[in-house]
């Protein structure tokens, strides 16, 4: 693998692949027209987001890096799941048990950082009397 340098689109255009293994330049208008490329072929790969997290860390922003790593975890979940996870964490949407279910689901999908965030939320929502 070539050395990955920021910005990736400039230095590593051919090296970066989507989740389905396509490079940016393999996403062509012609292939979209003939149906061999779909929206799924344009999904960012989790490893790319982890590499961006390293760039963010080197740039002095560990919180942005954390966010990109959580994003890397969520990248493999469907749109519907992602929308559902977010909604579940909003006020008054879920019980403790339901949030624990979400955390378990995240853990099962390898999203440990996101699961930790949900566990943290459970603890503080409970302490502040927002959920039972």
């Amino acid at each position: 693998m070539a050395e990955l340098r920021y910005p990736l689109g400039q230095h590593n255009r051919a090296d970066i692949r989507s989740q389905t293994g396509k490079s940016a330049d393999e996403l062509t208008v012609a292939d979209i027209r003939n149906g061999t490329i779909t929206a799924d072929d344009a999904a960012v790969d989790p490893d790319t987001l982890r590499r961006q997290a390293e760039f963010a860390e080197q740039g002095g922003n560990p919180q942005l890096a954390d966010n990109l790593r959580r994003g890397a975890e969520l990248a493999l979940f469907s749109d519907d799941d992602v929308l559902r996870f977010y909604d579940a964490l909003r006020p008054g949407r879920s019980s403790v048990a339901e949030l624990q279910g979400i955390a378990a689901e995240l853990e099962a999908g390898g999203a440990e950082r996101c699961a930790a965030l949900v566990h943290e939320a459970i603890a503080h929502y409970s302490r502040r009397g927002l959920i039972s």
Partner: peptide, 16 residues
């Protein structure tokens, strides 16, 4: 909440 907003931020990141 701060946690739902943090997860929302990660949701955007997850789609580039």
């Amino acid at each position: 909440t701060p946690w739902s907003k943090a997860l929302l931020a990660s949701s955007y990141a997850s789609r580039g």
